[in-house]
């Protein structure tokens, strides 16, 4: 089970951050060639990220690169560099339709052939940033076997909806739509960034909401948010104890050939057992909540 709770954004043009960010150990690290890079530094950022991706320390964690849209003069150049450098996942911004993913996929496959990389080894993520993307979320989520997830990007989305970031009401439909599309396609779903890095309380409130909704994780813009997020996603000791008892009862029932299993007088069915196994896997990967 690949955990993707935290996806840390790094500005692609920042040499210091690219040289040190691996120490923060997010689940995935995302080098940004798009919004975090000024127009005149696009070439420099592309070159820096190409070399950073080849560092052994980044080979040990999942690497993601947010390329520029393929409709810009930079997108295809970004793709040529990062696929050849061995990136794990390419994140496509501003994905409005399934065709956007198909176009990206065709380019990725061509580059894989040209550079001798295993066909299909470059995974994709689609960022949904508009009303069109939300309406087409199911088609986008099902558009390619390379897709490991879809992400909602809040700022562009609320601009497209002619509103602004607030208490989360403005994102309610989009979060539900993206999440359902991801679950339907059996891929991961990622929530928006929380931009006020000094507001831990607000951050944790938002994390609690998206975790309860079912999101796999969140895009982050500051390393300080990683531990907060991981801890919030870790199960409590009480949840781990209960999950252990459920799994033990289910395994005992299986050995005895029982069709129905009960624990403390309550019937345990397959979804409860499945959820208990997920809790134990999360505890194994991230420990128990502090």
């Amino acid at each position: 089970m690949k955990l993707r709770r935290s996806m840390l954004f790094l500005p692609g043009a920042n040499a210091a951050m690219l040289s040190t960010a691996f120490v923060f150990k997010p689940d995935s690290i995302m080098f940004d060639l798009e919004d975090a890079v000024s127009l005149r530094e696009k070439d420099a950022a592309r070159m820096l990220v190409f070399h950073a991706l080849r560092l052994p320390v980044y080979r040990e964690m999942e690497t993601v690169v947010r390329i520029n849209p393929l409709s810009t003069p930079f997108g295809l150049k970004d793709l040529e560099a990062v696929v050849r450098a061995g990136v794990d996942v390419v994140r496509l911004p501003k994905t409005d339709t399934a065709d956007d993913v198909h176009v990206l996929e065709a380019h990725v496959e061509r580059i894989e052939r040209e550079c001798g990389r295993e066909i299909g080894s470059t995974k994709l993520m689609a960022a949904i940033e508009s009303a069109s993307g939300v309406v087409n979320a199911v088609a986008i989520a099902c558009s390619s076997p390379r897709l490991i997830g879809i992400a909602l990007a809040g700022f562009d989305y609320v601009m497209d909806m002619q509103t602004e970031r607030g208490d989360g009401t403005e994102l309610f439909y989009a979060r539900c739509a993206v999440l359902h599309a991801a679950r339907y396609a059996k891929i991961d779903a990622f929530d928006v960034v929380f931009s006020d890095v000094n507001d831990d309380e607000g951050f944790l409130k938002e994390v609690d909401l998206i975790k309860r909704m079912g999101f796999d994780g969140k895009s982050l813009i500051n390393p300080r948010q990683i531990d907060l997020l991981h801890n919030a996603y870790a199960p409590t000791q009480e949840e781990v104890d209960y999950a252990s008892r459920v799994v033990a009862a289910a395994e005992a029932g299986e050995r005895q050939g029982l069709g129905v299993v009960s624990l403390n007088g309550k019937m345990i069915d397959a979804p409860v057992i499945g959820h208990a196994r997920v809790v134990l896997r999360r505890a194994s990967a991230s420990g128990v909540r502090q």
Partner: peptide, 29 residues
């Protein structure tokens, strides 16, 4: 700077100083 940053900056400087730049990524790694 780390070696990879040195390489990236030298290559970027060269790409900006020549008339035509078509990156050969295999030669740049």
């Amino acid at each position: 700077a780390l070696d990879c940053v040195v390489a990236a900056r030298v290559q970027t400087a060269v790409s900006r100083a020549v008339d035509e730049w078509t990156p050969d990524w295999s030669a740049l790694s």
